[in-house]
Simulated scan of single mutants.
Amino acid sequence: MEEKAAPVRIDPAPVGEPQPEVQPEVQYVYHFVRARPRVVIKRDLLPAVAVLFTIPLLGMPAGWLWARLAPPQNKIILENGKPFPVGLESYHRLDALMVFVMVGLGIGLVTGIGMWLMRQRRGPVIMLAATFGSLGAAWVAQTTGLGSAAGIYAIPADLKINQVVAAAPTLETWWGLLAWPLATALAYGCCAAWNGLDDLGRRLG
Rank of each mutant, 00 (worst) to 15 (best):
V39C: 03
E25W: 09
K42F: 03
H31A: 15
G16A: 03
P37F: 05
P14I: 08
P14D: 13
V15Y: 02
G16N: 05
V39P: 00
H31V: 15
R43A: 04
E21K: 11
V26N: 04
E25C: 03
E17H: 02
P14F: 10
V33R: 07
K42W: 04
P14S: 14
V29A: 09
I41G: 00
P24M: 08
P37D: 11
L45P: 01
P24W: 01
Q23M: 10
E25D: 12
Q19F: 09
Q23D: 14
Q23L: 13
V39M: 05
V15F: 02
A35V: 06
D44G: 02
P37H: 06
V33N: 03
R36M: 10
V33W: 05
V26P: 02
V33S: 09
E21V: 14
F32A: 15
V39D: 04
G16Q: 03
E25S: 15
V22L: 13
R43C: 00
V29D: 10
V15N: 00
H31G: 07
R36P: 01
E17S: 09
L45Y: 00
V40W: 00
P24H: 07
E17Q: 07
D44I: 01
R38Q: 13
Y28H: 11
Q27C: 04
V29P: 01
E25Y: 07
P18V: 06
R43I: 02
R34A: 05
R34G: 08
F32V: 11
V39R: 03
L45W: 08
H31W: 06
D44L: 05
V29G: 06
K42A: 12
R43Q: 06
P14W: 05
I41Q: 02
V26K: 14
R36Y: 07
P37T: 10
P14T: 10
P24Y: 11
R43N: 02
P24T: 06
L45N: 04
P20Q: 10
L45E: 03
R43K: 11
R34W: 01
Y30M: 13
V22Y: 01
P20V: 06
Y30V: 15
L45R: 10
L45G: 05
V22P: 01
A35L: 12
V40Y: 00
P18N: 10
D44F: 02
E25T: 13
D44W: 00
H31Y: 12
Q19G: 09
Q23E: 14
E21G: 05
A35T: 14
P24S: 09
P18Q: 08
E17A: 12
V33A: 11
V15D: 08
K42R: 13
R38L: 08
H31R: 15
V15S: 03
V22N: 07
P20G: 02
Y28S: 12
I41N: 01
Q23V: 07
P37M: 07
Q27K: 10
V29Q: 10
E17Y: 03
R36E: 14
I41R: 07
V39F: 00
K42C: 00
I41E: 04
V22K: 14
F32G: 04
D44V: 01
V22A: 13
Q27M: 09
L45Q: 04
V29N: 06
R43W: 00
P20K: 01
E21P: 02
V39T: 10
Y30A: 11
D44K: 00
F32P: 00
